[in-house]
Structures are given as structure tokens and as C-alpha cells.
Amino acid sequence: MPMPASESDQQRDQRAALSAAMDRYADGDAKAFGEIYDLLAPRLGAFFLRHTRDHAHAEDLTQQTLLQMHRARQSFVRGSDVTPWAFAIGRRLLIDSRRRRKNEVLFDSADDGAGALHLRVSRDAIPEEVASTKQMAARASAEFERLPEPQRAAYQLVRGDGLTVAEAAQVLGTTASAVKQRVFRAYEALRATLGIGDAADPQGNER
């Protein structure tokens, strides 16, 4: 099985900055919250918006996540990775919200399947190309819905939300190896549905 791409320098720097800010916030530095918000809120907001398709609800869930982080700040283990912790809180809130709001979908596949496989329609595309791409998107969407929930969750966190494999593993309460396997199987299923060849793995590495 191909190995996922390594963490970029920018991701590593952001992770370190977020961890340092959370350490200061847990120690009583109220000003550190601004740094936490700037580094984390956009990612949480995008995560919630992708799953709810509702800007107001996504913002509300983001605020709820940050509020729960605030309430739990004194129990935060200094030096720990903040992103998996925050996304685990957010995912629980999203699941609870889904139970209350039956008209929303936790893993909306309209963009997840097709978007993750980089299906795009150019502004100059002819009608036949547009129709073909929409058909492929519909097939990917249907296939994504048929995937087991663990595969959908792992694929979305890694490919859709930009978490590292290690971060996704912490969010899902499993091992990095299990996440890699789930992402790979989900990608293989989507690729087979679209008839895409064996060019690259879901992390962009040559196979």
C-alpha cells in the first residue's frame, strides 16, 4: 500500500504554533485565544460547512467547539497536538447535531467523491463535457454513500479536511495504519467507479 505524503513545513509550523498558543491559553494567557482562533476557526468552519451546507449552522458549531475547548482548557495536556483534539470535539458536536436535525447529512457526498478526485468543469467546456462530468460526479456521489462509514470518515478527514493521517487517527480513535487502509480503500472504490487508471494514490504519490 502506498505511503501518504509527509507533513509539509507549513503544516508543521502551524501545528507547533497552535500547540504553543494552546499551552499559553491553558496557563491563563487570555490573549492566546486570538491565535488559536486564527489558526483553527477557518479549518473548523470549512469542516462544518462541508457537512451541513449551512453557513449559520457551521458558524454555530465552530463557536460551540471553541467554547468546549475553552471549558476544557485547564485539563489540556501541555504539548499535545491541538488539531485532533479540536476536530474530535467538533465531530461529536456534528454527530449530535445530525441526530437533532434530520434534514442534514454528516458526510455529504455531493462534493466529497467527485471533488476529491479532482473532477472539474472549465468555463469553456462544451455541453457534452459538462454533462459527462456531472454524470461522473453523480456516480462518485452514489459510490461514496455506499462506502462503510469508517472509510467515509477517514477519507473525508484526510482528503476533504486536510488532517494528517496521525491527526485523523486521533479524531477517530484508531491507528494511523487503519486510517491509511480506510482512505486507500475508499479511494480505490471511487476510482474504480469512475474508471480511473492506477496513476497515483490518494495522497498524490506514484504507485
Score class of each variant (00 low, 15 high):
Ala88Asn: 03
Ala168Thr: 00
Ala169Pro: 03
Glu167His: 06
Thr175Gly: 08
Arg99Trp: 08
Gly90Arg: 05
Arg92His: 10
Asp111Ala: 13
Asn103Met: 07
Ala72Thr: 13
Met136Val: 01
Ile95Cys: 00
Arg100Glu: 14
His57Gly: 11
Asp81Glu: 10
Asp108Ile: 06
Gly113Glu: 06
Ile95Met: 04
Gln74Pro: 13
Leu93Ala: 07
Thr83His: 02
Leu49Cys: 03
Glu145Ser: 13
Leu93Tyr: 04
His51Leu: 13
Gln63Val: 11
Val158Gln: 01
His57Lys: 13
Pro127Phe: 00
Ser132Met: 05
Leu172Val: 02
Gln64Met: 11
Gly113Phe: 09
Asp124Gln: 12
Glu145Lys: 14
Gln135Leu: 11
Gln156Ile: 09
Pro127Asp: 11
Val105Met: 10
Arg146Phe: 08
Thr164Glu: 02
Phe144Val: 10
Leu119Val: 06
Asp81Tyr: 01
Gly79Cys: 04
Phe144Asp: 13
Ser97Ala: 12
Val130Lys: 03
Gln151Gly: 01
His55Gln: 12
Arg99Cys: 09
Arg92Gly: 12
Thr174Asp: 05
Glu59Leu: 10
Ile89His: 07
Ala137Leu: 08
Gln63Asp: 13
Gln170Asn: 00
Leu163Tyr: 06
Gly113Cys: 05
Val171Thr: 06
Ser122Lys: 09
Ala153Cys: 03
Gln170Phe: 01
Val130Asn: 04
Pro150Val: 06
Tyr155Val: 06
Ser141Val: 10
Phe107Met: 11
Ala86Pro: 02
Ser75Pro: 03
Arg139Gly: 09
Leu157Ala: 02
Thr164Gln: 06
Val165Gly: 04
Lys134Ile: 13
Ala86Glu: 06
Asp60Gly: 10
Arg91Glu: 12
Ala153Gly: 04
Glu149Ser: 14
Glu149Val: 15
His51Glu: 05
Arg152Gln: 15
Ala140Ser: 05
Ser75His: 10
Leu172Thr: 00
Gly90Pro: 02
Arg53Trp: 09
Ala125Thr: 05
Val165Gln: 09
Asp81Arg: 05
Val77Arg: 15
Asp108Phe: 08
Ser80Ile: 03
